[in-house]
Design a protein around this nucleic acid. Structure first.
Length: 166
DNA sequence: CACCTGATTGTTCGA
DNA sequence: TCGAACAATCAGGTG
């Protein structure tokens, strides 16, 4: 367990309790290797192409919020051209939001994740098919999340808590 | 000309 | 269990 540090993945317990920032990765590039430009940010799948259909990670609630925030931010700050500016402002605002406010974003992120899981299945399948292709259909049949289950705004009825602290 | 970097947090996979 | 990487963005900077 190692609670002494547990700074990372502290979310399991209570990240908010202790400052997790600390710039753990600072620039997600040094940490492990202080030197060496190990900064590979996924380029443009140009030369990557390592995986035929590697599903891109779904935008987290923060990114969903950021997307909208960027519009607003740029709208009020069309002069700002630094992506870091939006990131900082977004991050700050994000922390300012209440769970209820983040709920809609999380819900959206949750949906993306659901789709991502589906893609992952296909992705894993593809890799496996590499060795032996042929029965992918049988296995996928049951594994497949039903053929056409478009829940859409179903929303399961969660969120919408309406905290209304005001 | 093309790719990398910065900056934010969250999520996800791998060892 | 923990860490490291990557997701969008966008313009500037570098090889």
């Amino acid at each position: 367990m190692k609670t002494t540090k547990g700074k990372a993945t502290a979310r399991s317990s209570k990240e908010t309790l202790k400052p997790v920032d600390d710039k753990r990765v600072g620039k997600r590039k040094a940490v492990a290797k202080p030197e060496k430009s190990s900064k590979r940010q996924a380029k443009k799948e140009r030369n990557a192409k390592k995986d035929p259909n590697k599903p891109k990670r779904p935008p987290s609630a923060f990114f969903v919020f950021l997307e909208e925030f960027r519009k607003t931010f740029k709208k009020e700050n069309p002069n700002v051209k630094a992506v870091s500016a939006v990131g900082k402002a977004g991050g700050e605002k994000w922390k300012s939001l209440s769970e209820a406010e983040k709920a809609p974003y999380e819900a959206k992120a949750a949906k993306k994740k659901a789709e991502y899981e589906k893609l992952m299945k296909a992705y894993n399948k593809k890799q496996e098919s590499s060795a032996d292709a042929g029965d992918e259909e049988s296995d996928r049949s049951r594994s497949e999340v039903n053929d056409e289950d478009e829940e859409e705004e179903g929303e399961e009825g969660e969120e919408e808590e309406e905290e209304d602290d005001d």
